[in-house]
Design a protein around this nucleic acid. Sequence first.
DNA 1: CTAATTACTTGCATAATGCAATTAATTAGA
DNA 2: TCTAATTAATTGCATTATGCAAGTAATTAG
Lengths: 148, 148
Amino acid sequence: MENKRELFQVLTRRFGLLNKNCCSIGAVDISSVQSHILYEIDKQTSPSMQQIAEAIAMDITTFSRQIQTLIKMELVKKTPSSADKRVSILSLTVQGKFVATTIDESMNAYLEEVFSHMNEFERETVIRSIKLLNQAMSKSSVCCTPLL
Amino acid sequence: MENKRELFQVLTRRFGLLNKNCCSIGAVDISSVQSHILYEIDKQTSPSMQQIAEAIAMDITTFSRQIQTLIKMELVKKTPSSADKRVSILSLTVQGKFVATTIDESMNAYLEEVFSHMNEFERETVIRSIKLLNQAMSKSSVCCTPLL
DNA sequence: CTAATTACTTGCATAATGCAATTAATTAGA
DNA sequence: TCTAATTAATTGCATTATGCAAGTAATTAG
């Protein structure tokens, strides 16, 4: 059996790069952490701070400050929940939605480019494998606490 | 065709976690960046600072400081090259080698655990796919500059 | 033999991180 | 019902990571 660590080390490194590149949209410059936040807010429906912070496995205090930054950048909006006044509901502003969508598109374009170096069969196999991996990791006890 | 970004977003996130966990060995506590450095020094033969910094796509100034830290921790040694006195050759100390090996083992154990949630066929497929992905990324123009 | 280049280090200035402690709102228990 | 415990989120540090600009020392080019 091969050295899995080797494979993953390289893969992780490349992913990191892919993520780094992918986040400046015109004048707006976003860190990769922030892009994860936008992504997750976009995905969930009326999420609270806790929910997003947990989804991306980020310390709530750091998260709180990141949200403050994103609000200053006018990408995110915070609305107090009427049901529970302690809770803040997060949403994307129009601009935030635009940025999130643009990042999504450019990431997909990047990935298409990467996949263009494979034939159809390989593409299918790789996609299926990533799904398998995600599933396996979600079942794993050793990592990957942020379910989903 | 599926949404690749979605898949990769999740995968990236999990990898990040996997990496975070895996780096405290007894009293020694290592950041995931530092573990990448140890890994790469261990792998290459008599590498210079530049070489390692480039391999992990890290700014040389940040790298320089990370190396200083690792030297204080007595995990890494810096030897001036006799051929070119500007160059520093990096190597692991005995303890550094031990830490690198231990991290490698525990990462592999983690990965084995993850892979234990698949059957033999799936395991093979996933491993092959990761290799394919790595290859494709290395061919890609959009990312992944740190070849290898 | 001087000028340009290269390998690496330091001086900022900024951002990210997380623990401890705080505030405000909600829920539980006597 | 009123106080105590819990919860959501924010702030106060203190630490670490990051990277550009500038510097030093060694090497190479012309």
